[in-house]
């Protein structure tokens, strides 16, 4: 395992100041989440610079955007959805990515009651109880084991929350990689960990923790080996330097690239 030489500008100091994101519809900020009850499922909101934004609805584990937690701030990386009506009183951010800040924050405890004026005007993807027979989003089908696969190079990329390591979402991404590696009887697994930074709307830059690239890469190797993929040789690398963020799609830098070689 080794560190790759930095090829991009390193970001050492947290909250360095840069220019704000060029796209005026971008809203990147760190704030407390707010949960508002409705007659159906709760809405998750957050306030930034005097405006209330709608982040997501409560759905289920399959949702592309999962709600944040009271008791923790959240990094919001979103874009105002053009022409969208407010939901639960909030300006709709879509697409939006939410990263829960690990350190607890007791100030984040706002839970608002339902009000008629904020009730949903549409059917939510999942009610606050039993489903109609399937998960709200068909994004998490049980992985199917590959058969008769070509023995050729396969590449994958695992996305991460800001400062995040492996979480509950990753089994559905790791399992196909593991299954493919077993089916191909790979000889080599190359893993490269990356870290990123977020350019916030106020122009400040928030880099991920310095060890994220390394820990991500090492953890993925440990997980694949722990799941029984012990035969191949592992090449584990990481790039400590985070590329300068633009405020647009900064999340793509938070990843681990995995290459399976026959």
């Amino acid at each position: 395992m080794r560190r790759l030489l930095p090829v991009m500008l390193g970001l050492g100091a947290p909250l360095a100041i840069a220019a704000a994101p060029a796209d005026p519809s971008i809203r990147n900020f760190v704030a407390c989440p707010v949960v508002r009850d409705t007659a159906s499922v709760p809405c998750w909101l957050s306030e930034h610079d005097g405006e209330l934004y709608f982040l997501t609805l409560q759905a289920d584990v399959s949702a592309p955007v999962n709600p944040p937690w009271l008791g923790h701030k959240v990094l919001v990386e979103g874009r105002i959805k053009p022409g969208a009506a407010r939901i639960c009183g909030g300006v709709v951010l879509e697409p939006v990515r939410l990263s829960i800040i690990a350190e607890p924050d007791a100030a984040c405890h706002t839970q608002l009651p339902a009000e008629e004026r904020y009730n949903l005007t549409f059917e939510p993807p999942r009610p606050p109880g039993p489903s109609g027979g399937r998960l709200a989003f068909n994004t998490l089908p049980m992985p199917v084991k590959p058969v008769d696969v070509k023995r050729e190079v396969k590449q994958y990329s695992l996305p991460y929350d800001f400062d995040g390591l492996i979480n509950f979402k990753h089994p559905f991404q790791l399992t196909p990689i593991l299954d493919m590696a077993n089916a191909m009887k790979v000889s080599r697994v190359e893993i490269i960990g990356h870290r990123g930074a977020a350019l916030l709307s106020d122009g400040s830059v928030m880099p991920e923790q310095a060890d994220r690239a390394k820990r991500r890469a090492e953890q993925v190797a440990e997980l694949l080996q722990g799941a029984g993929l012990t035969a191949p040789k592992y090449d584990v690398h990481w790039i400590d330097a985070a590329p300068a963020p633009s405020g647009i799609d900064d999340h793509t830098q938070r990843r681990v690239d995995i290459t399976l070689r026959p």
Partner: peptide, 26 residues
């Protein structure tokens, strides 16, 4: 048991696996 909602909060490995904290469920 099936339909009576309440707020489930601060329960590790429930609130932390995509439902949010708190979550209004049954």
């Amino acid at each position: 048991f099936m339909f009576r909602t309440f707020w489930i909060r601060d329960s590790m490995h429930l609130n932390s696996v995509g439902l949010g904290n708190p979550t209004k469920r049954t």
